[in-house]
Design a protein around this nucleic acid. Structure first.
Length: 425
RNA sequence: GCGGGCGUAGCGUAGUGGUCAACGCGUCUGGUUGUGGCCCAGAAGAUCGAGGGUUCGAAUCCCUCCGCUCGCCCCA
C-alpha cells in the first residue's frame, strides 16, 4: 500500500484519460463560441459568505458540504462548491451591467463538495458553467438549454433527455408550499424520516421521495406546475414553444426540484434515458432572477447551467465512445556512447525546432533496449547514432512503423528526411 | 450522516487453515561484436489494506480500524 493516496473523493486524471477531457473541453469551447459566450475564470476560493448568501444557507451544499477555512488573515473562505454565485459576484464587481446585455459568460473549473463519494460523485469535480445574465426573456432559457443540448450532441451522447419544470417566482411559490404542507400535514406520522425532515426544510422535495412509505401520498399532492402564476405560466409555455421549434426533446417533470435556493421559474436537468442509477444527471440549471439582487446588485434576471465533466465522460464511455492517446513520440534518437549522446542531443534539438516530438535514449542502455522503447512509445522512426555514424557524419534513419529498409542520412539532411517519415505516418 | 459489497506485485486475477504466495499483462536484462515488433530465457516487484485475536500453524476464521465501491440523503 502506498503511503499516500489521493484524498478521498478526488482522483488523478491519468494520461490515458486525457483524450476524453480534451475532447469535452474542445467541444464545449467550440460550441459555446458559436453561441456567443465569452470565457471568464473566477478564483478557486471565494468568501464563504458569498455562497451562504447566494446558494442559500440552509441548502445541503452550503450547510454540510462546503470546504470552509480561515486564512492567516482571519478571512473565512470556501473552495467553490458551485459556480453561479462566483460569476454573479464578478458581474457586479466589474460593472458588467454596462456591457451589452445580456452578458453571456462561460467557464470551467473545479468544484468542491464534502460529501460521500460514489459513482459520478466526487469531492472535487469539474463543471462547465454557462450563464446568460441580464435577460428575462424565455428566449434566454431556451438558448441555455439548446446550448447544453448541443454540447452533448456534438460529443456524440445519445439517449439523453431534458427534464423541464417551472418552480414559479418566490411569492406564488410560497403560497404553493403552504398548500403542499397542508396536504401533507395529516399524513406526517406515516411519512419516512427523510420526508418528515423535508416537510420542514424543503417541502418541494417531498414529491421527489423514492421511499415506499411516501409513495401513496404523492399522487394526490398538488403539483406546482399545475398551478403556476400567470406570468410564470406564460414564461414556461414560451420556453416550451422555443424548445419544440429547436427540436429538443424534453419531458415535463413536475417533481423536478433543484437543490439551490436561488432558482425561480425554469429549472431543468439532462439525464440519460437508459441509466437508472442515482448519480447520472449530467447537467442541470435554471433561471435565477433574484440572485444578483440578493448579492447586493440591481434586480437582474439571469439563467444558466452547469454540467459535470466527469459525468459527461462516464456517459461517453457508456455510449461506447473510445478515445485513445495519440503517439507522444515522433522520433526516437538511439545513441551509443558518450560522443553519440552529444551528437544525439544536438540532432534532437534541431528536430524539435522543426516541430517533431523527439526523445533521446539513454546511452547506458543497449541499442536493443533503446529500440524496444522506441517501438513501445510509438515512434515513427528511430535515429541511430554511434561511433561509426559520427565518423561518417551520418545517422541511421530506421522506420519503425513499416518495412522500409533503414538508410544512412547525412546529419545535415536529417531534419528534412525525418520530417518526411513523420508526415507519412 | 446512514446501509450493502469488496480489499493478494503497477494492472487484471488464482489460491478460502498446512512449504510467508501462483499466473497473465506490464517493467528491466539477456538470447555473442550496434538493430524494435514475434518467440524463448531470466530478473526485479507483494510485510496477502492496517492492527489485534483464535490456532501447533492464517492470505484463508473472528474483532476493530482504514480504504475503495454501490445505494440512501443531496448534487454535476
Amino acid at each position: 500500500m502506498p503511503r499516500f493516496q489521493a484524498p478521498r473523493g478526488t482522483q488523478d486524471i491519468l494520461p490515458a484519460q486525457q483524450p476524453y477531457w480534451q475532447r469535452v473541453l474542445t467541444v464545449a469551447q467550440e460550441t459555446v463560441r458559436l453561441f456567443g459566450f465569452r470565457r471568464i475564470d473566477t478564483p478557486i476560493f471565494e468568501s464563504a459568505a458569498l455562497f451562504e448568501k447566494g446558494s442559500g444557507d440552509t441548502t445541503d451544499v452550503v450547510e454540510k458540504e462546503m470546504y470552509v477555512f480561515e486564512d492567516r488573515g482571519g478571512d473565512l473562505l470556501a473552495l467553490t462548491p458551485e459556480g453561479t454565485p462566483a460569476i454573479c459576484r464578478a458581474y457586479l464587481e466589474h460593472g458588467m451591467a454596462s456591457w451589452p446585455q445580456p452578458v453571456r459568460l462561460w467557464t470551467t473549473h473545479p468544484m468542491f463538495r464534502y460529501d460521500r463519494p460514489q459513482r459520478g460523485r466526487y469531492r472535487q469535480h469539474t463543471q462547465i458553467d454557462c450563464e446568460i445574465i441580464g435577460s428575462a426573456s424565455p428566449l434566454a432559457d431556451a438558448e441555455a438549454i439548446e446550448l447544453l443540448w448541443t454540447i452533448y450532441e456534438r460529443l456524440g451522447l445519445r439517449n439523453l433527455e431534458v427534464r423541464l419544470s417551472s418552480i414559479d417566482d418566490p411569492e406564488p411559490r410560497r403560497a404553493y408550499v403552504a398548500a403542499l404542507k397542508e396536504y401533507y400535514r395529516p399524513f406526517l406520522e406515516r411519512l419516512s424520516e427523510d420526508s418528515r425532515r423535508r416537510f420542514e426544510r424543503n417541502p418541494l422535495r417531498l414529491l421527489d421521495s423514492k421511499d415506499e412509505r411516501d409513495l401513496p401520498f404523492k399522487e394526490g399532492a398538488p403539483k406546482l406546475v399545475d398551478r403556476l402564476s400567470p406570468a410564470a405560466r406564460d414564461h414556461f409555455e414560451a420556453v416550451q414553444r422555443l424548445l419544440q421549434a429547436a427540436g429538443i426533446p424534453y419531458r415535463i417533470d413536475p417533481l423536478l426540484v433543484r437543490g439551490l435556493d436561488y432558482y425561480n421559474r425554469t429549472v431543468f436537468e439532462v439525464v440519460p434515458l437508459d441509466d437508472e442509477r442515482a448519480q447520472s444527471t449530467v447537467g442541470g440549471g435554471g433561471r435565477y432572477d433574484g440572485l444578483i439582487e440578493l448579492l447586493g446588485g440591481p434586480p437582474t434576471p439571469a439563467v444558466g447551467f452547469g454540467t459535470g465533466i466527469e459525468r459527461i465522460i462516464l456517459e461517453m464511455e457508456r455510449n461506447g465512445i473510445v478515445l485513445q492517446e495519440a503517439p507522444t513520440t515522433d522520433l526516437f534518437v538511439a545513441v551509443l556512447g558518450e560522443a553519440a549522446a552529444l551528437e544525439g542531443t544536438r540532432a534532437a534539438r534541431k528536430l524539435r525546432a522543426a516541430g517533431l516530438a523527439t526523445v533521446v535514449g539513454e546511452p547506458e542502455r543497449s541499442l536493443k533496449a533503446q529500440l524496444r522503447t522506441a517501438d513501445r512509445l510509438g515512434a515513427a522512426a528511430a535515429v541511430i547514432i554511434g561511433e561509426d555514424e559520427i565518423r561518417a557524419g551520418v545517422a541511421v534513419l530506421k522506420p519503425l512503423r513499416d518495412e522500409r529498409p533503414q538508410e544512412e542520412v547525412p546529419l545535415h539532411d536529417l531534419v528534412e528526411r525525418a520530417a518526411a517519415f513523420v508526415r507519412a505516418r
